[in-house]
């Protein structure tokens, strides 16, 4: 059983490596953000798998919190990339803030 989980973990590591390739290559910043988003999702799954491999049930809470943080991180980085200002309350989705 553990063997199957380790193989799955390796497969996810491979996915993370591929996502990292895209994050490094770009070419647009949105490609990088998208790749980092995938990377974060895979991290959650890796933590869940490690929970089962090691049998430490407490680790699953880490995965739970990481799943939440990952989403907020992606949206935050996106806003930072778009407006260069995290404190601005301008509505990014409506294109109210453009680079000038």
């Amino acid at each position: 059983m553990t063997l199957v989980m380790v193989v799955t973990t390796m497969a996810i590591f491979a996915t993370m490596a591929l996502a990292l390739v895209r994050a490094l290559k770009g070419p647009t910043i949105y490609d990088r953000i998208n790749a980092v988003n995938v990377f974060g999702t895979k991290t959650v799954l890796i933590i869940a798998l490690i929970t089962y491999i090691t049998g430490h049930a407490d680790l699953i809470d880490v995965a739970l919190v990481y799943a939440l943080i990952n989403f907020i991180a992606v949206v935050t980085v996106l806003k930072l990339a778009k407006t260069r200002d995290l404190a601005s309350s301008a509505d990014v989705a409506d294109g109210a803030v453009e680079h000038d």
Binding site: A11, L18, N34
Partner: peptide, 13 residues
């Protein structure tokens, strides 16, 4: 699941 992960990663590249 692992296989689809790799396929997704491949597509990303």
């Amino acid at each position: 699941g692992g296989a689809f992960g790799i396929i997704g990663g491949l597509g990303l590249v």
